[in-house]
């Protein structure tokens, strides 16, 4: 695939994400996954060559802190979306195949959709204390019902097609038909959904840790940084702007990526409709 044929949003999204996540990964490895060094005498330092965004109230380099936080936030978002995608897709496929089992799955999904995500997170935190694992579970649980619905709907639109009947006539069972025909054909929809879910997961992660339901300190975290530094919005604006802008860039990046992927992956099917006359 040549670059000029790729949708603009895909390019823009990739540039934003790579521009943020490559330095984030480097910094994360540099600090061995920990927060930057505490240097109390040097706190609230203005931007300089050694500290491009200045330092925070503990004298930590703000740029490194934010980049490590971006890495952590993205990692939590990726893990929770992966979890939701795997579980939601399997359950959605069961739901699409109908029967009593399918009906049970879909009812559970509807029930799940009715639960506010904050409540799920609060329950998990109460049960086992604030942690990255709890956060991953909460965000994944939030995403699963939607994933089930999307998978089911997409799979059902494939299951009525004649090539499914042809495969059944050849002697393939439900599972084999699903793996051979349904999954490859709904993959584009799942990929696009995963990408836009990542944007939502980033926002959820930032939101949960802003409320203190995320990973505990000293793990750098964008949401927590926003919560604790918001009082400095006028005297040290960088402290608030840096994590805020980073969250925005990540969310925008994943959203653009999702839009671009949609244009790219769903184009082969659109082509048939395009042919007029």
């Amino acid at each position: 695939m040549t670059l000029h044929r790729a949708p603009k949003s895909l390019l823009a999204g990739s540039v934003l994400l790579l521009g943020c996540l490559i330095p984030a990964t480097i910094v994360w490895i540099w600090h061995g996954g920990h927060a930057p060094f505490i240097d109390i005498p040097n706190r609230y330092a203005p931007p300089s060559l050694t500290h491009p965004l200045g330092t925070d109230p503990f004298g930590r380099d703000l740029a490194s802190y934010v980049l490590t936080g971006a890495f952590n936030t993205t990692a939590i978002a990726v893990l929770s979306v992966a979890l939701a995608t795997v579980i939601g897709t399997i359950l959605g496929l069961v739901g699409a195949n109908g029967g009593k089992r399918g009906w049970a799955v879909m009812s559970a999904a509807d029930l799940g959709l009715a639960f506010p995500p904050i409540l799920i997170a609060a329950m998990l935190v109460t049960a086992q204390g604030a942690s990255a694992t709890g956060e991953i579970l909460a965000i994944a649980l939030f995403g699963i019902p939607a994933q089930i619905r999307i998978t089911k709907q997409a799979a059902q639109s494939i299951l009525v097609l004649d090539y499914i009947s042809a495969a059944r006539m050849a002697g393939f069972g439900s599972v084999a038909v699903t793996i051979r025909h349904v999954l490859p054909n709904i993959a584009p929809i799942l990929i696009v959904h995963a990408s836009t879910s990542l944007a939502l997961a980033i926002l959820s992660e930032a939101g949960l840790s802003y409320l203190g339901l995320g990973a505990p300190p000293p793990q750098p975290d964008l949401g927590r940084a926003l919560a604790s530094y918001q009082i400095h919005i006028f005297d040290h604006p960088f402290l608030v702007a840096a994590p805020g802008v980073t969250v925005m860039v990540l969310v925008l990046g994943f959203n653009l990526l999702g839009d671009g992927l949609r244009d790219l992956l769903e184009r082969p099917f659109a082509r048939n409709e395009e042919s007029l006359s």
Binding site: L161, D162, S165, N185
Partner: peptide, 10 residues
């Protein structure tokens, strides 16, 4: 089958 679109897995 009838439907020339849906009869073959794209």
């Amino acid at each position: 089958f009838q439907d020339p679109q849906g009869a073959l897995d794209p």
